[in-house]
Design a binder for these strands. Structure first.
Length: 288
DNA sequence: AAAAACCTCAACCGCGTGTCA
DNA sequence: GTGACACGCGGTTGAGGTTTT
């Protein structure tokens, strides 16, 4: 398809044009793809004009980044990705674009949506604020360790073929090969037992998350939960989270876990880590 | 089978920041 | 210094799809 360039010469402000909004059509997508293939990303207002799109530059940029970009990855968020999101959010808060940088192919929008629809839903179920200490503790001492266990299990049992939303470890590793600067959050945590505002510039060797997960005794989570060292929230960054008594948090949640078997049931998605009983137990604990 | 409730996610909006003339 | 413009980010919305009643 030919990229129209005639409209490029005559500038029309967005106010002058009757700018289109709403869902993109296939033809609009093609126009934008063609334009970016030829001219590259950036200068979105110009792109909108020169590609003959009756859209704002902002809209073009968003469409490209969230949907049309060739490396954008769609489909269910894998367990590994869920783990990364939880870890990174606990460190960086709602800095979605920063978190997205650690999940190649995922967009900030997607991660933000995931957080709002899945994670906040569970906070609601537990009748606590998603930013409350209680919910953070639950995430940190119950949810994340269970996710790690699930990842270990699914990795050691059988290839997670056919599982809903299962991006395999190998795909995760491939991401890292594609993007060597990307480090595993688990590894980061392992090598950074204390909060460190320098994390932004840190580049650690690429790790294979599989290896770490295959060895629960040496894994970060089991160690840290037992010893009270490890994954701390960051009070240096933009996150508003405070320091808190990590050891007490461990005791709290261990108490929850001791209240019954099946606190967290099996399943392949993060949602399935929760069942009615576990929610009830956690609610009771949070009330006390 | 139909209506209501719920969920997901693409897209929009407002605001802050950076750059340049 | 400052105004205009482009860009990027996080919050929010709403249409459409799915599930429940």
């Amino acid at each position: 398809m030919e990229v129209r360039s005639s409209s490029c010469s005559s500038y029309q402000s967005e106010e002058d044009m009757d700018v289109r909004k709403g869902p993109w059509t296939v033809e609009e997508d093609s126009l934008l793809i063609n334009y970016v293939n030829i001219h590259g990303e950036g200068r979105w207002n110009t792109a909108a004009r020169c590609a003959g799109l009756n859209r704002t530059g902002k809209s073009c940029r968003l469409r490209w980044l969230n949907y049309l970009r060739p490396d954008v990855r769609r489909g269910n968020i894998s367990l590994q990705e869920q783990l990364l999101i939880l870890e990174l959010h606990s460190r960086w808060g709602n800095r979605w674009s920063k978190i997205a940088q650690e999940l190649p192919g995922r967009t900030d929008n997607e991660i933000k949506n995931y957080w709002r629809t899945r994670v906040q839903k569970h906070a609601k179920q537990l009748k606590c604020d998603v930013n409350s200490k209680q919910f953070r503790d639950v995430m940190r001492y119950v949810w994340i360790p269970r996710l790690v266990e699930r990842i270990q299990a699914s990795n050691s049992d059988s290839p997670p073929q056919g599982q809903p939303g299962a991006a395999t470890f190998s795909s995760r590793v491939n991401y890292q090969e594609d993007n060597p600067a990307t480090e595993s959050a688990s590894e980061w945590v392992d090598s950074n037992p204390l909060p460190d505002s320098s994390v932004d510039t840190q580049v650690s060797p690429v790790s294979d998350l599989t290896t770490e997960c295959q060895n629960p005794q040496s894994g970060y989570y089991s160690d840290s939960v037992q010893t009270g060292s490890g994954f701390y929230p960051d009070n240096n960054g933009s996150s508003s989270w405070d320091w808190y008594n990590y050891g007490q948090g461990v005791q709290d949640v261990q108490g929850i876990e001791q209240q019954g078997d099946g606190l967290l049931s099996g399943g392949d998605s993060l949602e399935e880590l929760w069942n009615d009983e576990s929610i009830l137990l956690l609610q009771q604990h949070l009330m006390s």
